[in-house]
Measured scan of single mutants.
Amino acid sequence: LRLEVKLGQGCFGEVWMGTWNGTTRVAIKTLKPGTMSPEAFLQEAQVMKKLRHEKLVQLYAVVSEEPIYIVTEYMSKGSLLDFLKGETGKYLRLPQLVDMAAQIASGMAYVERMNYVHRDLRAANILVGENLVCKVADFGLARLIEDNEYTARQGAKFPIKWTAPEAALYGRFTIKSDVWSFGILLTELTTKGRVPYPGMVNREVLDQVERGYRMPCPPECPESLHDLMCQCWRKEPEERPTFEYLQAFL
């Protein structure tokens, strides 16, 4: 395994491009020591290896001592969030954005069929390849993070704006909380990567959403798509659509 080009840095580690087995181009995620327990990670990795779908980033291998390494397929255009905010983002029109959403829903419909939960679905965790191919990455890892700023769910590192209220408040993460996050991801797509709930801080978002506030229809977004977002944001988790439905609708 060779680490060649550093692609990015996040709160919990770095991402590199490299070569595996001398020939395969891969992405390598390294986790800061202390982010998660190697034992817990190894268990999760076994499950992650079983998830194989064309719209999920394929896991190739893991190094399960500290520092933990995760070796996955390489996606040339990086994260969907950076892609939307970058040069190419300007030229993306609604049909392409909807197609990308459908690809993500397709990957998540598979996660749904496998009775698995992602827990951290957002544009930053979707990767883009050639020809606007989108794949879901980092599934299941969020559960293992041991950082206090994260586990408190009120901490600075927790993605509260993407998280369903029952998950943020009571830790009830299910495929239905993933559906909520998918609704937020749809706003990221239609606004080219704007942060959700602009002008609001995490605490406010939690309070307002509890009181029934939902983001309005983004500019140039059809009402039918906003309606779909609002279905994803129904207060009762069981009233939210399935990913199978979302995939078919898109």
Rank of each mutant, 00 (worst) to 15 (best):
L1E: 00
V5R: 15
K6Y: 15
G8L: 00
Q9D: 05
G13V: 00
G13L: 02
G13K: 01
E14T: 15
E14V: 15
V15E: 02
V15W: 02
V15H: 01
T19Y: 10
T19F: 11
W20A: 12
W20K: 15
N21C: 13
N21P: 14
N21R: 09
G22E: 10
G22L: 11
T24N: 13
T24H: 12
I28F: 09
K29H: 02
K29G: 02
T30D: 07
K32D: 01
K32V: 08
T35R: 15
L42P: 03
L42F: 07
E44M: 00
E44V: 00
E44L: 02
Q46N: 14
V47E: 00
V47K: 00
M48Y: 03
M48C: 04
K50G: 07
K50L: 11
K50T: 13
K50V: 13
K50R: 10
L51I: 05
R52L: 07
E54C: 10
K55C: 12
L56V: 14
L56H: 06
V57Q: 10
Q58L: 12
L59V: 03
Y60S: 09
A61Y: 14
V62Q: 08
V62R: 06
V62G: 04
V63Q: 05
V63I: 09
S64F: 05
E65Q: 10
P67K: 05
I68P: 05
I68M: 09
I68V: 07
Y69F: 13
Y69E: 08
I70G: 01
I70H: 12
V71D: 00
V71A: 08
V71P: 01
S76G: 10
K77S: 11
K77W: 12
K77R: 13
G78I: 03
S79A: 06
S79K: 03
L80G: 13
L81R: 14
L81D: 15
L81V: 14
F83L: 09
F83E: 07
L84E: 05
K85H: 12
G86F: 12
E87A: 12
E87V: 13
T88R: 11
Y91V: 08
L92R: 09
R93D: 05
R93W: 10
P95A: 08
D99A: 15
D99I: 14
D99W: 14
A102D: 12
I104L: 05
A105G: 06
A105V: 10
S106Q: 10
A109M: 15
Y110S: 06
R113A: 12
Y116V: 15
Y116D: 01
V117Q: 00
V117F: 03
V117C: 10
H118C: 02
R119I: 06
R119D: 00
A123V: 09
N125G: 00
L127K: 04
L127I: 07
G129F: 04
E130S: 14
E130I: 13
V133C: 09
V133R: 14
C134L: 07
K135S: 13
V136M: 05
V136Q: 02
V136T: 05
A137N: 03
A137Y: 01
F139Q: 03
G140Q: 01
G140A: 00
L141A: 02
R143N: 03
R143T: 05
E146S: 07
E146Y: 05
E149L: 08
Y150C: 01
Y150F: 01
T151Y: 12
T151V: 14
A152I: 04
R153M: 06
R153V: 06
Q154A: 13
Q154D: 07
A156P: 01
A156G: 11
K157D: 01
F158D: 01
F158Y: 02
P159T: 01
P159H: 00
T163S: 04
A164I: 00
A164V: 00
A164D: 15
P165I: 14
P165R: 10
A168V: 05
L169S: 09
Y170V: 08
G171A: 06
G171D: 02
R172F: 05
F173T: 05
F173N: 13
T174P: 05
I175E: 15
D178L: 02
W180H: 06
S181L: 01
F182S: 02
F182P: 00
F182A: 07
L185K: 01
L185E: 02
L185G: 04
L186C: 08
L189S: 08
T191Y: 14
T191R: 04
V195S: 14
P198G: 08
G199D: 10
M200H: 07
V201F: 09
N202D: 00
R203G: 10
L206R: 02
D207Y: 10
Q208A: 12
Q208L: 15
R211C: 10
Y213P: 02
P218Y: 09
C221S: 07
P222W: 06
P222A: 08
P222I: 08
P222E: 04
E223T: 12
M229P: 06
Q231L: 11
E236S: 12
P237T: 12
P237L: 12
E238D: 13
E238H: 12
R240L: 01
R240I: 02
R240E: 01
R240Y: 00
P241R: 07
T242C: 10
F243D: 03
L246C: 08
F249M: 07
L250A: 09
